[in-house]
């Protein structure tokens, strides 16, 4: 079941599109589910499909096409590290290694306590701030150094 909060948020998105184009809100709807639950299950996809009057498969196509959707449970704080060219030139692999060492997980994994997840991302379009990661696809942290990473992790750990 979609929560009332998700439905309210979807309704707000629906207002952006022509009335007969509800499908346009599917990307946002899936995003809202992920915001609330951390990932999107098949049941969630069915619910979204029902809410927007779409075939289940059409929702599934969207959910599996766009890479920021988590199709399995991820951490409470999922860090997505960009490893693309500019970030690579500026040390993104060191960032991945450092995060891996600190959290004890590799890319695509979640810490045992479910607190942190780690993903690899493609270009965020913020290359002058390399290296960088996003937190839950919301907050972008750039010009990372080990010290800065320590600070961010400590802050997240408290939440």
């Amino acid at each position: 079941m979609l929560s009332d909060q998700i439905k309210t948020r979807i309704d707000r998105e629906l207002a952006k599109y022509p009335a007969d184009q509800k499908q346009s809100a599917v990307m946002a709807a899936l995003r809202f589910v992920q915001d609330e639950k951390g990932w999107i299950s098949n049941d969630d996809m069915e619910d979204v499909a029902g809410y927007l009057g779409m075939p289940h498969m059409a929702v599934y196509e969207v959910a599996t096409f766009y890479h920021m959707y988590n199709l399995k449970p991820m951490g409470k704080h999922t860090l997505t590290v960009c490893t693309n060219i500019s970030c690579m030139l500026c040390g993104s692999s060191e960032v991945v290694d450092y995060l891996g060492k600190k959290l004890g997980i590799g890319l695509g994994e979640v810490t045992a306590d479910g607190k942190f997840g780690l993903r690899e991302g493609e270009c965020f379009g913020a290359c002058v701030d390399a290296p960088m990661f996003t937190i839950n696809n919301k907050r972008l942290c750039g010009k990372l150094t080990n010290a800065k990473i320590d600070e961010i992790l400590a802050e997240l750990d408290k939440q």
Binding site: P55, M57, A58, Y60, E61, T64, F65
Partner: peptide, 8 residues
Amino acid sequence: MELGQAFR
């Protein structure tokens, strides 16, 4: 739509 092309 019963079949689709998932993933990319």
